[in-house]
Design a protein around this nucleic acid. Structure first.
Lengths: 325, 325
DNA sequence: GTAATTTATGAAATGGATTCCATAGCAAGC
DNA sequence: GCTTGCTATGGAATCCATTTCATAAATTAC
């Protein structure tokens, strides 16, 4: 196929000039530029991007590692990432890891091989030391607190955020509280679980083990939880639920069974997802969109700078008071 | 960083020999191979894949264009694709198009730029002629009937499959039939719609416009349809529903309202998805997994061969009789 | 009117691998 | 003893674009 050399020959200029035209460099005379563009058109030429990647050492691509592409929590973060990537004219490649270390390593190896310019790890099964090793080959940003490691992170203090949610419920007078969690293997899930148990213990609240329910990720799961609650001999006055979609399913099903919310059951959501707004769910906004956007901005900056120090960006959270608590 | 030349120098061999070691070429003596592997280890060397891609003209990557990554229909196809890609040691990159032509063109341009070895188009907004233009740059496989175009395709005869479903319902004695469709912009949706209307007309079946419901893609949508049906002054005896997830939602909700299935309402699903098996839904298996697997096998073969003729692979379909009709 | 910039152009080096071709030693075949 | 075939090795060409450097012409500065 046609290459830059052939374009140069036919247009009667040097390859340098062709390259300048391709890259919009100013120092090209009007007629030569026109001649080059003409030949490009005639020969239906495009650059071989592999050659560009080789010589520039850049690929304009960042990989995103996340466990499940279809989880609501992650998809909000993805929206933030995607928006910023578009602005920066970068390409993202999505890698669903299912929390398999091997899959994640494969992506990090791509960084080492120069196939990508950086890696954004939304949630991971890898040990921090493993990630740290790869920072030698390019910037890595995680969306979990990395604890001053050699790579950047954008994170929420899940412990504090979750406690604040509980505190809010307690402040409203609720004394028995149940808890719905998403997938157990996420690291933030175990942090929240600790926060929950400690809070219950500190405040000497009544608690039953069956009020703690795992693996809730969809509206359907929420509906199932509602049915579960209805069958319990004793059920909590309030539920704190990680994920507004689950909260939505729970509420809809509970109302169907005649429960009034928050009268019979208070519901506190999490993540401030669009559906929560629709259903007036009181929730904790932990700025997931901003988290994604911020992660991309950081990695973009680090790709551009040549000796970047890691950045640790803590995002805040806030309770959005609506009508379910 | 270390490159092949440096490895060669330190190991005391030629770059050719190092390359042979890297590519498991047999003609390397035991000790030289060991020396090379040693130096590679010591210098923590890996190949710069951009150089490999440039010289070989291959990237070992295939792009997949699909409108929505989280639609069940597409995710089954993806599973088939992913499995075969893994076997062939190929990488897939997913491109969610939202049926935007620009996004799809971007991916096809990557083929032209040699960033990928082939493109698999699961569903598209592009005109066949546009796709055809890009076949000059590498193999393209679509999962829709391409009608003997210059690119390959693996497809189901949606028209015939859908008619067979209707025929089956009619054979079972149902005379009033409703219809749930997914997104309207899919090309297969309009084919099925035609099939439906023609069948109704041919057999002079009673039909009401409100029995035709669009934009049903999730269980929730199915549940909403159930509620809609319950409120109708007259409702059909049977529903044909593209997608078992929607059928599932509809059934669960209908049963909740006291309807017996198939006694009060027969339900015919589509796509033979796992949830359908669970709920004993009678459905049409149109081999979506095989469709994905087949698409990858075709493109893989075409990448390897140097003058490949397009392949047109028609998949069959069959009714899986369970207990909802 | 001379010095300093700015504009315009191309030759050649560069990035990092693969592969064709040439060469040579050595074993097998007849 | 001479040809053939296999194993082992390296030199050099190749893939294709970017970028540094050198040079020259055209402006601008003072």
């Amino acid at each position: 196929m046609a290459n830059i050399k052939e374009i140069a020959r036919i247009a009667g200029v040097s390859v340098t000039t062709v390259s300048r035209v391709l890259n919009n460099h100013p120092y090209v005379s009007k007629d030569k530029r026109a001649a080059v563009l003409d030949t490009i058109e005639q020969l239906n030429y495009t650059r071989n991007m592999n050659a560009v990647h080789l010589i520039t050492g850049r690929t304009g691509t960042v990989a995103v590692i996340l466990p499940y592409i279809n989880a609501f929590y992650f998809s909000i973060i993805m929206n933030g990432l995607a928006h910023e990537a578009l602005l920066a004219q970068y390409r993202l490649i999505l890698c669903q890891s299912n929390y398999l270390a091997d899959e994640e390593i494969k992506v990090l190896e791509m960084l080492r091989n120069k196939e990508i310019d950086g890696v954004i790890i939304v949630s991971t099964a890898l040990k921090p030391e493993t990630i740290e090793e790869y920072t030698a080959y390019g910037p890595v940003v995680t969306c979990q607190d990395s604890g001053q490691r050699r790579y950047s992170s954008v994170y929420i203090e899940h412990y504090a955020a979750f406690r604040q949610g509980l505190q809010y419920l307690k402040g409203k007078g609720y004394r028995t509280i149940g808890y719905c969690e998403g997938r157990q293997n996420g690291s933030s899930a175990s942090i929240r679980q600790t926060a929950f148990r400690e809070f219950i213990a500190e405040h000497k609240l009544v608690f039953q083990e069956e009020w703690m329910i795992y693996d809730c990720t969809t509206e359907e799961d929420g509906a199932a939880v509602a049915r579960l609650l209805l069958e319990m001999p004793e059920r909590p006055e309030a539920m704190i639920i990680t994920g507004d979609h689950v909260a939505a399913g729970l509420m809809i099903e509970a109302r169907k069974a005649g429960l009034s919310i928050p009268g019979d059951l208070a519901v506190m959501g999490f993540d401030n997802q669009p559906i929560g707004r629709l259903l007036e769910i009181t929730t904790i906004d932990n700025h997931l969109y901003e988290m994604g956007a911020s992660a991309f901005r950081i990695i973009h900056e680090q790709i551009s700078s040549d000796n970047p120090a890691p950045v640790y960006r803590k995002l805040d959270y806030r309770i959005i008071e609506r009508s379910t608590v």
